[in-house]
């Protein structure tokens, strides 16, 4: 993966993630973690190489199913990206509305997701009334509704204190084995505490692929 000015963002990166696997993507800032996530989400196109998601070659010049690809994935961001003029329910429901899901299904799926993230009592609240941890829970709920089998999380605990970060990780733990999760972070406590597969990135290269690893950079 090269940027237009010629500087390489990623080199020699090759990996495979199995269905329902939980993988941490770790490395210092600028290591290429976000670039990998953007390539998977088809926000960027690689200058060389191939990316397969659910057997779809998303790097093929003929690939024209970006919307379908993104509907398979839920995204969780460091800065939450929760819309301030929509309440909790509406923020989560937008993920389903774009898939033309029926009202009753939206209602039941959102309630289920709210239950999972522990915000059932706050569905009518607006983002301004909520804490950072609660906003991230909404983002997770939005990422899991609508049959999204892959969760791409880009530093989801980056803006949270350690206690809240662990609360968020408990939600991710509940999703373990049900969704494929690619979790980019440089929070070593979390990575070491979870003991999951770890991809270690450094200077745009995949340095290590550790099965039940920790953050030992």
């Amino acid at each position: 993966m090269q940027f237009p000015m010629g500087n390489a963002a990623l080199r020699n990166v090759s990996f495979e993630i199995k269905e329902n696997e939980f993988v941490f993507l770790v490395g210092p800032s600028g290591a290429g973690k976000t670039t990998i996530l953007k390539l998977i989400l088809k926000q960027l196109t690689p200058s060389a190489g191939t990316i397969l998601v659910n057997n779809m070659e998303i790097t093929s010049p003929d690939f024209n199913q970006t919307e379908d690809l993104r509907r398979m994935m839920g995204v969780v961001f460091q800065d939450f990206k929760i819309l301030s003029d929509k309440n909790v329910f509406e923020n989560i429901a937008m993920s389903l509305r774009i898939q033309s899901v029926s009202r009753s299904q939206i209602e039941s799926e959102v309630q289920e997701a709210l239950d999972l993230v522990g915000l059932k009592h706050k569905e009518q609240a607006f983002p301004a009334q909520m804490s950072a941890g609660e906003l991230q829970r909404i983002a997770i709920a939005r990422a899991i509704v609508g049959n999204r089998d892959i969760i791409v999380a880009d530093e989801p605990t980056g803006n949270l204190d350690p206690k809240t970060s662990w609360e968020i990780m408990k939600i991710f733990k509940k999703l373990e084995g049900k969704k494929t999760i690619l979790f980019a972070t440089h929070n070593s406590d979390i990575v070491n505490g979870m003991r999951k597969r770890v991809f270690v990135m450094k200077e745009g290269e995949l340095k290590k692929d550790i099965k039940k690893g920790g953050y030992d950079l």
Partner: peptide, 9 residues
Amino acid sequence: ELLRLLGAN
């Protein structure tokens, strides 16, 4: 941007 990322056409 968010809608596009969630797969809205």
